[in-house]
Design a protein around this nucleic acid. Structure first.
Lengths: 229, 229
DNA sequence: TCAAAAGTGTTTAGTTTACACCCATGC
DNA sequence: GCATGGGTGTAAACTAAACACTTTTGA
């Protein structure tokens, strides 16, 4: 059992939790640290991995502790392990990113936080704790890349949504305008959206509501279909 | 310093090292384990992360120990941390993948290996050690995805290569035929290849040799250019 | 009847796919 | 001169981009 001879880094998970707010801004959940190091600095929610706990499980646990949500899109991002990234000693952190529907959930704030809040992704506070600036940067890049060839964006919207909402979502994440006509044509042609009903009581022509049909998508991928925006 | 209160998993790096052999097969370097657990099973080269060592550094160290090569494409793949993945106890492994020009380097074989050999990627041995089957699967998928939108494939070829060699490379990695005319047009139009000279002493019309112009590529990416096959 | 957002038609430019052919070299 | 890859021309099908227009609702 020679493995036990080696000194070991501590192992944590950190979560980049993205949400979309009512006024159509992409936001990320940060907590204000109660303790040193980096007391009162904003940081990503995270914590230590238990000895008998899978990494994914640890990340989902952190996510649920902070937001109360389960069963949302969550995926491993990258593992950060620079020797001096934590002043307390060697700490390696496996970062995850998640997409949640912000309207349905408010941050809870864990014990070790002074405060917790949703911050605008394109207008972040300075001096984040540890290397969290870098982690966030990578998460944004990954989200922007991934959203284009995997249908994960739906995770940020309510279960039923209009095509305009969906387009707006993509414009926010990709940070550039899209053409309405082409967006709709493309989206509908893929055949992974299911028309549900119409909006009601809006002061304009009511839009069709759609939901993402995951079964159809899975079936299509099996026969070579590729999602793409 | 409460971090020290927690029991810690051991931390290792594993390397998926890809190479292209003379007869145009994609191969991966595996070592035959000398010791238990999984004695005499094929496994990915890897080892423990030193306490003051960056993860990337550890991966590059492993790569150099096994192959003698430095300064090749190497990138973090994913971190594997299922509680029972190593029978000795909790071991979390950060996996990397690398691309090397196989013709210029032969495996060295480290101390803890009975044997080391390049195995065909699409014809792997059964019963790899630990979860290395899964790691390899993910590495192949990542390579196939990444090679299409980042110019990393060149790492598998000699510094100078013909367009036919390059096309062959893509056909091998993507595991499907590509159209010659279209491949060439697309490749050359991107403007990241530099024509060097001609082949000599071949029993057919001599082909132009090219090299990948990294500077040009970097410059182009800065002005919004996207590599794509 | 007006504002607001939903939703559609159509033209043009560009890209992808496919196939067929010619070219230069060593043996 | 012929086998072997190297290299090119071009038509047809498809996709993306751009723009302008019509429709439906509540107030």
């Amino acid at each position: 059992m020679y493995t036990y001879e080696y000194p070991r880094p501590a192992l944590t998970v950190d979560c980049v939790i993205f949400g979309l707010d009512q006024s159509h801004e992409l936001r990320v959940l940060l907590i204000k640290r109660k303790h040193e190091p980096f007391q009162s600095h904003w940081a990503l929610p995270g914590g230590f991995v238990e000895m008998d706990e899978d990494l994914d499980t640890a990340a989902k646990r952190e996510l649920e502790e902070e937001t109360g949500v389960r069963n949302v899109f969550i995926e491993q991002l990258y593992t950060f392990g620079a020797p001096q990234r934590d002043p307390r000693g060697r700490v390696v952190s496996v970062a995850y990113y998640a997409l949640v529907n912000l309207n349905e959930h408010q941050p809870k704030g864990a014990d070790d936080a002074e405060d917790a809040d949703w911050h605008k992704v394109f207008d972040l506070p300075e001096n984040l704790a540890f290397d969290h600036q870098q982690v966030l940067q990578m998460a944004i890049q990954r989200l922007q890349a991934k959203v284009r060839y995997q249908p994960i964006g739906f995770g940020l919207l309510p279960a039923q949504f209009t095509l305009s909402m969906l387009q707006k979502l993509y414009e926010i994440i990709l940070n550039r305008p899209l053409n309405k006509r082409n967006f709709r044509t493309k989206m509908l042609k893929m055949g992974i959206l299911e028309q549900v009903e119409r909006q009601k009581a809006v002061a304009h022509r009511p839009a069709f509501l759609y939901k993402f049909n995951e079964e159809k998508y899975k079936h299509l991928t099996q026969i070579g279909f590729m999602f793409e925006i």
